[in-house]
Structure formats: structure tokens, C-alpha cells
Amino acid sequence: MSLTADDVNKIAYLARLGIDTQDTESYAKDLSGMLDLVAQMSNINTDDVAPMAHPLDQVQRLRTDAVSETNNREAFQKIAPQVEAGLYLVPKVIE
């Protein structure tokens, strides 16, 4: 499996991840290497095997629908890059 620099740019956009143009080729090479490594899996027949999501095959625990968290908005917003009136600020999305 070989990825091109174009492929890398597409994947990087899906991940919203900035990649320097001069590094695209080397990412393409490394990613192709990783995909070659994982390609060994395709030689194994797994038709009758159930996927394993959790080592102990545990199911999600349920809890009563009651308030369990206290409001820590101030503490959480203190470390935010930009806030105003209790809101997180980002560049304008809707004109």
C-alpha cells in the first residue's frame, strides 16, 4: 500500500492537522511503511472471529440519571485560550 503526497494532504485535512509542505513526502513514505506493516493482517482468515473491543468483554456500566458533577466552569475556562462572558471564543463561523 503506497500513499501519495496528495493522499497525505487529504488525510491531514480530515484530521484538521497542519503539515508543512516540505514534510508531505516523508509522511507519505512513513505512512506507506506503516500500512505495509499492518497489511500482514490480511493474510489471516478471520471470518468467524468476533471483533474484540474490550479485553474483558465488559459492557458499559449504567448509572442513575442524577446530577453527579459540580459546575467547574470558572476553573475550566481559566485555562482556555479565549473566553468572554462564560463562552469559549473562536473566529466567526456564521456571517
Binding site: L3, I11, L14, R16, G18, Y27, L31, P91, V93
Partner: peptide, 28 residues
Amino acid sequence: VDLNDLYIRSRGEGFGTEVKRRILVGTY
């Protein structure tokens, strides 16, 4: 300049090469 630019550049500047490799493979 916009929200996408904020995501892309913040993440591009914040993460190192190995982390980026793994995010890219995982995203793929």
C-alpha cells in the same frame, strides 16, 4: 482567519512528528 484555520494550525504547531504520523494513520 477562520475556525478551520484555527484547528489546523493549532494542531499542526502543537503536535510533533510521531504524534502526527499516528493521527494520520488512525484517521486513514
